[in-house]
């Protein structure tokens, strides 16, 4: 019997080996929590979930709605800014560069406070959910712009020459060659970014958008069950992000035809 803890390079672990190690990891995680709770003398309690199920459900749905809306708007921003970064119109180019630098160089929490005063107070968007979506989109747009820009730059010029050579006109080159190839490169990364949006949306609780995070802040402020509350909250985020990560890695594999 080979060492149950190790695999050799290029070895595929057996089912028994996989199960053994998964159980081991679960045990380690359990022990960390068990001893931490024991020191504090806390017993894990999830009974609040039944009582608060409507609020939790509402918060859960709100997080999904905010994330989807932000994905759509930030995608639009990202496309415009990605084009801006390569634009021959200098004002557009410099603005796009400045935007990306600022957003990527400062923390989201600061941007939320800052933009809430701009978007919310100065622009008069009093609806907190809408303001939250706009702020989150401005933030994520910079990252999506970089994803799109990267895939634009990685387009193979030989492919475009070949497209001209077979007689495609400009529209056909974009539709038949450039867009599908860009999709293949951006889709996995965009899906991954969607998981980030879901996590980042939790910071909108700072401006009292009642999404998942804020719901749990309110619940735990009432029942003082911080451990139970936040562990459950973590699980809810994982329910959203794990499938997305899975889809992202599947997309990556299915588009791996380039290499």
């Amino acid at each position: 019997m080979s060492n149950p803890f190790l695999i050799k390079k290029d070895e595929k672990p057996s089912v028994a080996k996989i199960m053994f190690n998964i159980v081991l990891v679960a045990l380690i995680i359990y022990l960390i929590f068990y001893f931490s709770l024991k020191v504090l003398g806390i017993v894990l309690d999830f009974s609040f979930v039944i009582v608060m199920r409507t609020r939790i459900f509402d918060g859960f749905i709100m997080t999904i709605i905010i994330s989807i809306l932000s994905l759509i708007i930030s995608l639009a921003i990202g496309i415009v800014i990605a084009m801006g970064k390569g634009s021959s119109l200098l004002v557009f180019r410099y603005f796009s560069n400045a935007y990306v630098q600022f957003i990527r160089g400062t923390p989201l929490i600061m941007q939320i406070y800052l933009f809430y005063y701009i978007v919310g107070t100065a622009w008069g968007i009093s609806n907190r959910i809408l303001a939250g979506v706009v702020i989150l989109s401005i933030f994520e747009g910079a990252y999506i712009a970089e994803i799109i820009r990267g895939s634009l730059l990685s387009l193979d010029q030989k492919q475009i020459e070949a497209a001209r050579a077979v007689g495609f006109n400009k529209k056909q080159i974009i539709k038949i060659v450039i867009l599908p190839q860009m999709m293949a490169r951006t889709l996995p990364a965009l899906t991954g970014q969607f998981a980030s949006i879901i996590k980042d949306s939790s910071l909108l609780s700072l401006i009292a958008v009642i999404e998942l995070m804020q719901t749990f802040r309110e619940i735990t402020a009432g029942n003082y069950n911080f451990f139970g509350g936040y562990i459950f909250l973590g699980c809810l985020y994982l329910i959203l992000t794990l499938p997305i990560s899975y889809i992202s890695s599947r997309l990556e594999k299915s588009f791996a035809y380039e290499n």
Binding site: D156, K158, Q159, A162, A163, V166, P180, E258
Partner: peptide, 12 residues
């Protein structure tokens, strides 16, 4: 008709 050195086929 054109044939290039390599990479001339649309790889998608």
């Amino acid at each position: 008709g054109f044939v290039f050195q390599n990479g001339g086929l649309f790889f998608h």
